Every structure is written in structure tokens, then in C-alpha cells.
Measured scan of single mutants.
Amino acid sequence: SIKEIEKEEIIKVLKEVNFNKKLASEILGIPLRTLYKRLKEYGI
């Protein structure tokens, strides 16, 4: 599903940037606030 793909992509990017959420949100092209929402939604 799209949610699974998105979750995997978020985890992959977070690992690449050593869990720097600000940098991860910039790489993913989403606002930091949205990233936090996704992390909560996906239980990351």
C-alpha cells in the first residue's frame, strides 16, 4: 500500500540522516510538522 511505501521511505531517510528530523523532512520534501504527524500515525 502507499502508506507502507511512505513509512519505509521515512524510515530509510531517517536512518540516512541519523534521525535528524529537520533534515529528513527537507529531503522528503514535506514540512517538519507533517513528518511528526506521519511518525505518530505510523508509530515510528
Rank of each mutant, 00 (worst) to 15 (best):
Ser1Trp: 06
Ser1Leu: 10
Ser1Met: 09
Ile2Phe: 08
Ile2Tyr: 06
Ile2Met: 13
Ile2Gly: 13
Ile2Glu: 14
Ile2Pro: 13
Lys3Arg: 13
Lys3Gly: 12
Lys3Thr: 12
Lys3Leu: 11
Lys3Val: 11
Lys3Tyr: 10
Glu4Met: 08
Glu4Ser: 08
Glu4Asp: 14
Glu4Lys: 08
Glu4Trp: 06
Glu4Arg: 07
Ile5Arg: 14
Ile5Ala: 15
Glu6Leu: 11
Glu6Arg: 10
Glu6Thr: 14
Glu6Cys: 08
Glu6Ser: 14
Lys7Ala: 08
Lys7Trp: 09
Lys7Thr: 07
Lys7Tyr: 11
Lys7Val: 10
Lys7Phe: 11
Lys7Gly: 05
Glu8Met: 14
Glu8Thr: 10
Glu8Asp: 11
Glu8Leu: 14
Glu8Ala: 15
Glu9Ser: 12
Glu9Arg: 15
Glu9Gln: 15
Glu9Phe: 15
Ile10Ser: 02
Ile10Cys: 04
Ile10Val: 07
Ile10Gly: 00
Ile10Thr: 09
Ile10Met: 11
Ile11Arg: 06
Ile11Asn: 04
Ile11Pro: 01
Ile11Phe: 10
Ile11Thr: 06
Ile11Trp: 09
Lys12Glu: 05
Lys12His: 07
Lys12Ile: 05
Lys12Asp: 04
Lys12Thr: 08
Lys12Gln: 10
Val13Leu: 08
Val13Pro: 00
Val13Cys: 05
Val13Asp: 00
Val13Ala: 08
Val13Asn: 01
Val13Trp: 03
Leu14Lys: 00
Leu14Val: 03
Lys15Asn: 11
Lys15Thr: 12
Lys15Val: 11
Lys15Trp: 11
Lys15Pro: 01
Lys15Leu: 12
Lys15Cys: 09
Glu16Gln: 15
Glu16Gly: 11
Glu16Val: 09
Glu16Lys: 13
Glu16Tyr: 12
Val17Thr: 10
Val17Leu: 06
Val17Asp: 00
Val17Trp: 04
Asn18Gly: 12
Asn18Ala: 10
Asn18Glu: 07
Asn18Thr: 04
Asn18Tyr: 08
Phe19Leu: 04
Phe19Arg: 03
Phe19Cys: 07
Asn20Lys: 04
Lys21Met: 15
Lys21Leu: 15
Lys21Asn: 08
Lys21Arg: 11
Lys21Gln: 07
Lys22Ile: 12
Lys22Thr: 08
Lys22Gln: 12
Lys22Arg: 13
Lys22Trp: 10
Lys22His: 10
Lys22Phe: 10
Leu23Gly: 03
Leu23Ile: 09
Leu23Ala: 11
Leu23Met: 12
Ala24Asn: 00
Ala24Glu: 00
Ala24Val: 05
Ser25Gln: 02
Ser25Asp: 00
Ser25Met: 03
Ser25His: 03
Glu26Ala: 13
Glu26Val: 14
Ile27Ser: 04
Ile27Asp: 01
Leu28Asp: 00
Leu28Arg: 01
Leu28Val: 02
Leu28Asn: 00
Leu28Pro: 00
Leu28Ala: 01
Gly29Pro: 01
Gly29Arg: 07
Gly29His: 06
Ile30Gln: 01
Ile30Gly: 00
Ile30Pro: 00
Ile30Arg: 01
Ile30Phe: 04
Ile30Glu: 01
Ile30Ser: 01
Pro31Ser: 15
Leu32Trp: 05
Leu32Ser: 02
Leu32Tyr: 05
Leu32Ile: 10
Leu32Arg: 03
Leu32Thr: 04
Leu32Ala: 03
Leu32Cys: 05
Arg33Trp: 12
Thr34Arg: 06
Thr34Gly: 04
Thr34His: 07
Thr34Glu: 15
Thr34Trp: 07
Thr34Pro: 02
Thr34Cys: 07
Leu35Ala: 00
Leu35Arg: 00
Leu35Asn: 00
Tyr36Trp: 09
Tyr36Arg: 14
Tyr36Met: 15
Tyr36Leu: 15
Tyr36Lys: 15
Tyr36Ala: 09
Tyr36Ser: 08
Lys37Asp: 14
Lys37Ser: 08
Lys37Gln: 15
Lys37His: 09
Lys37Tyr: 09
Lys37Leu: 14
Lys37Met: 13
Lys37Arg: 13
Lys37Glu: 15
Arg38Lys: 15
Arg38Ala: 12
Arg38Trp: 15
Arg38Phe: 15
Arg38Glu: 03
Arg38Val: 13
Leu39Trp: 03
Leu39Phe: 03
Leu39Gln: 01
Leu39His: 01
Lys40Asp: 07
Lys40Phe: 11
Lys40Gly: 06
Lys40Ser: 09
Lys40Pro: 02
Lys40Glu: 13
Glu41Ile: 07
Glu41Thr: 05
Glu41Asp: 09
Glu41Asn: 05
Glu41Ala: 08
Tyr42Pro: 02
Tyr42Val: 05
Tyr42Leu: 15
Tyr42Phe: 13
Gly43Arg: 06
Gly43Tyr: 06
Gly43Asn: 10
Gly43Lys: 07
Gly43Cys: 09
Gly43Pro: 03
Ile44Ser: 04
Ile44Leu: 12
Ile44Thr: 04
